[in-house]
């Protein structure tokens, strides 16, 4: 089967600090993949490269047939390519980042109307459907500030889904939440997984990583150390570095 997402030899530096050191992996359609690893190892940077929020120094990313490639020393890839890449890739942030001046419903409706020129009625119907799906139909007229963190994060997922992405990226979607609100967000992701959505989650929720993912990517110091079946990595990590990292969560 053709992979839906491919990263090949991705390099990224910030101010001469080499952050991503040739990351390669690929993901099949419908997979739910967790990325774990110590803080500062480049997980967020990798995720941001995958939907073009960061420019690559070199390497190749291909999602749903859209290819973003930069040879070493070549000029920056035009923003237009990242724009096409993002058509199929949605992203959810740790801090939700809902638009505070808009109601939840307006938050979900905005991008389709602005980017795709979707008619208001259509955008609204779609937004209501998505809000129902994430369990926020009743809250759609609220402003983000009047919602709990869990509600905001589910709203952010609905907002990303409104652009009909084929791949969803999550950067620590539950790290800012009170423990009691974590599951409502994870449940939405599980439901999407059941529907066949391709999802990549950077997370510290080891239980979720283990229970829900198809496999786990362990990163350290800007590179992938181990890609492994979720049970295997927990019970029998191949790499000693992975073992050491997971030891702390045992």
């Amino acid at each position: 089967m053709q992979p839906i997402l491919r990263a090949e030899n991705v390099h990224k530096s910030f101010d001469k600090t080499h952050i991503l050191k040739g990351v390669s992996f690929q993901i099949e359609e419908g997979d739910l993949v967790s990325i774990i690893g110590p803080s500062g190892c480049g997980k967020s940077t990798l995720l941001r490269c995958l939907n073009g929020l960061e420019t690559l120094d070199s390497g190749m990313i291909e999602a749903c047939g859209v290819r973003l490639e930069r040879k070493p020393g070549a000029p920056e890839v035009p923003g237009e390519v990242a724009h096409r890449l993002r058509r199929n890739v949605g992203m959810v942030f740790q801090q939700y980042n809902l638009f505070p001046h808009k109601t939840l419903l307006q938050n979900v409706m905005m991008a389709p109307m602005v980017v795709k020129g979707t008619k208001k009625e259509e955008a609204e119907a779609n937004a209501e459907r998505l809000l129902k799906k994430v369990g926020l139909y009743e809250q759609m007229d609220r402003y983000p500030i009047n919602m709990s963190g869990g509600q905001q994060q589910r709203g952010a997922i609905a907002r990303a889904l409104a652009m009909a992405p084929k791949i969803m990226l999550y950067d620590e979607p539950t790290s800012a939440l009170d423990p009691g609100l974590v599951d409502e967000v994870l449940d939405v992701m599980k439901e999407l997984d059941a529907e066949g959505m391709t999802q990549i989650v950077v997370t510290h929720e080891m239980r979720f990583a283990r229970d829900a993912s198809d496999y786990i990517i362990y990163m350290e110091k800007g590179d992938i150390v181990e890609i492994s079946d979720e049970d295997e990595i927990f019970e029998n990590p191949k790499d000693p570095r992975t073992r050491q990292f997971l030891h702390r969560f045992a």
């Binding site: 724009h83 058509r87 949605g90 942030f93 980042n97 638009f99 602005v114 907002r159 652009m163």
Partner: peptide, 13 residues
């Protein structure tokens, strides 16, 4: 800055 980023992630220019 996150506001701008969220909008761009939604594929706004």
């Amino acid at each position: 800055r996150h506001q701008m980023e969220a909008a761009i992630a939604l594929n706004m220019t």
